[in-house]
Design a protein around this nucleic acid. Structure first.
Lengths: 207, 207
DNA sequence: CGGCAATCTGAACGGTGTATAGATGCAGGA
DNA sequence: TCCTGCATCTATACACCGTTCAGATTGCCG
């Protein structure tokens, strides 16, 4: 993605503006978060005029949709990088940690991915991209024996809710009200693993 | 709050502008959501010039902080309205349902309450207001026996994460990818109670 | 009843997204 | 090789936004 951003040729025609704008937008998200994003700054970083992005993306929504799709790709990669063990509970703990870590490492991307007002979910790639990102969770949950007769969707929803809630609370710096003034990063590294180990012990049979 | 908004006197001086602006802002959140809010429109709805709010709140941040504090008050009221039974698990299910229902009934307020960039958390009333709102959860969790030796803070964090994650996923219309195209409202009324019953059965001893 | 301080106005500045008319230059056909 | 069509990009304009500030207004207190 980095290389795609370099102009194929300098001059009136950028040569690779679409990719350059996507990269620029992603970098703004990294630098200033989702609230610091502006279409004009993306154009500025790509070295083009304010109206140029409209031709490729129609609107800011169109550009951010592309970034969100990349975001789901990177989340999926982060989750798939978690080694699969023979203990589904262990896998769930590792996936949960990876999920929260991703949110903390890429807060801009993560927040964008869930913003229905900024991302065009009608894009046919959206459902596929977001579903694939969570396929690791789905697999671990289906592999995991359960004592309840809950359907797989209900179980996925519960697990997803838990990790998504943890990610959001930590990202919004709400955990500090419960665990002292520890930084979000320290919390995830030092406290969260313990919490997960007790939430999903390897000998449990819940959900 | 509604009555506080009516001007004590018409004329150059509004008479009760501070309360009127808070009401106007809350109504904008109800009508157009957090992204549709603007300080200028709040001034417009209160029938006052664009610079008037600055005197009372300093900035948009200051006004929204007041609205967020009211929001935590209304969330606390919604949670405290849940009847306390002799079954802590039953209480947790009712609280969870109330939490998600509140988020769905007041999406603008709910989203604002967790926006660190829009709300001044240094305000001394903030910590008190948000802690009190969740006191019902804390009480139910402390009353609930557990088989693990997790600390109360860890247990609160887990429960809060679960309900907060559910609220956010439903609010962001993500549940539909798991449970067909059911509207968020229908999901909360028809599907969620079942899910909660299986997540926190009355005879369980987890978390 | 006079003056002070709180309150509010109105205009200005720099920022935003979007629309549109016109300039530019690449690519492919004659 | 020329040249024409079309995709691409520029520049400008418009309507918003938050914040600031000098000045007008008025309630209130001495």
């Amino acid at each position: 993605m980095q290389d795609d951003a370099s102009p194929a040729k300098a001059g009136y025609h950028h040569g690779n503006l679409k990719a350059a704008l996507i990269t620029a937008a992603d970098e703004i998200l990294r630098d200033k978060g989702i609230e610091g994003f502006s279409l004009r700054e993306a154009a500025r970083r790509a070295g083009v005029s304010v109206g140029a992005p409209a031709h490729h993306f129609g609107s800011a929504n169109g550009l951010l949709t592309e970034v969100a799709l990349l975001g789901y790709g990177s989340l999926g990669a982060a989750l798939n990088a978690v080694a699969i063990t023979e203990d589904p509970q262990e896998d769930l703990r590792a996936l949960a940690l990876a999920y929260v870590t991703f949110a903390l490492d890429h807060p801009g991307r993560f927040r964008l991915m869930f913003r229905a007002d900024l991302v065009n979910r009608e894009d046919p790639r959206y459902a596929e991209s977001s579903t694939r990102a969570l396929s690791g969770f789905a697999a671990a949950i289906t592999r995991k024996p359960t004592s309840t007769e809950s359907g797989p969707m209900a179980r996925i929803f519960l697990v997803w809710s838990l990790v998504h809630g943890m990610a959001n609370l930590v990202l919004d710096d709400k955990a500090k009200y419960l665990f002292g003034g520890a930084s979000p990063d320290a919390f995830v590294r030092q406290v969260l693993p313990d919490i997960l180990a007790r939430a999903w012990p390897s000998d449990a049979t819940d959900v």
